[in-house]
């Protein structure tokens, strides 16, 4: 069993410890005996069709996001979108999540086109939304909760055709008004949550790995693995979020 992860713009979109997500995917594959390889693809580097099973992209500063948006327009973005249509899995966090939507509208200037994996758009907001987030989600493990930390001013709105990743219990989520957090479409998950997201939300890791294996025709049944440290970290973070709220 073998999976190849494509870490998009590892050099530019790696703010807020988003690297932890890649580490979590690798570690959970390793613990299940799945061979895994990570390749980084940066500005100007092309993506070979059919080569990758899981895509990952993190967040970046404004200037970096602009450079990445330019690089993604055209062929590169199209290939990623096609791969996801064809069953590849994907995690896009914060700035990455915004660029996987249809467009980003800044205060001034032109709309920044996204690659349109998610039927969603983002507009620049005045208020920065910062803090711990707890959201109810089907991918929230036994307790049904996602836990993470948001730090964004963009407000993302989903169309009717697409499901949110969860509904916020504490925090702002996509836009601070409709209660939705993140998006999920086929094997692609978008979210504003850092933390890093995957280490403390192992059910999302498993979802991504499972989808990627399914595409390869493998019906591996997941044996449970020891998650005691993960569970403790989740419990502590959830308690902290509720107390400081």
């Amino acid at each position: 069993m073998f999976l190849r992860i494509c870490w998009l713009y590892s050099e530019l979109m790696n703010i807020y410890g988003d690297r932890g997500n890649v580490m979590a995917l690798v570690e959970r594959c390793r613990r299940r005996g799945i061979d895994v390889e990570v390749e980084t693809r940066n500005l100007g580097e092309r993506i070979e069709q059919g080569r990758y099973d899981i895509f990952f992209m993190g967040g970046g500063q404004d200037r970096e996001q602009l450079a990445v948006a330019k690089d993604l327009c055209g062929k590169k973005g199209e290939i990623i979108r096609d791969e996801i249509e064809n069953g590849a899995s994907c995690l896009a966090i914060c700035g990455g999540y915004q660029l996987f939507g249809k467009f980003y509208k800044p205060f001034e200037g032109d709309e920044l086109p996204g690659i349109g994996v998610f039927d969603a758009y983002t507009i620049a907001g005045k208020k920065r939304m910062i803090g711990n987030v707890i959201a109810r989600s089907q991918l929230g493990g036994r307790s049904g909760l996602l836990i993470g930390f948001e730090n964004h001013s963009g407000e993302t709105y989903l169309s009717e055709n697409i499901s949110p990743l969860g509904m916020v219990e504490i925090g702002n989520g996509n836009n601070g008004s409709d209660g939705k957090e993140g998006a999920i479409y086929r094997g692609a998950v978008g979210s504003y949550l850092h933390g890093s997201l995957l280490p403390k939300n192992p059910s999302i890791s498993d979802f991504l790995i499972e989808k990627a294996l399914l595409r390869k025709g493998s019906l591996l049944s997941f044996t449970p693995i020891d998650e005691s440290i993960e569970e403790n970290a989740r419990a502590q973070a959830i308690e902290r979020a509720r107390k400081s709220h």
Binding site: G20, M23, K200, I229, E230, N232, A233, Q236, R240
Partner: peptide
């Protein structure tokens, strides 16, 4: 510390 288990998770990884 307040987030001891986050650190423990990082160490285990």
């Amino acid at each position: 510390g307040i987030r001891s288990w986050d650190m423990a998770l990082r160490v285990s990884y």
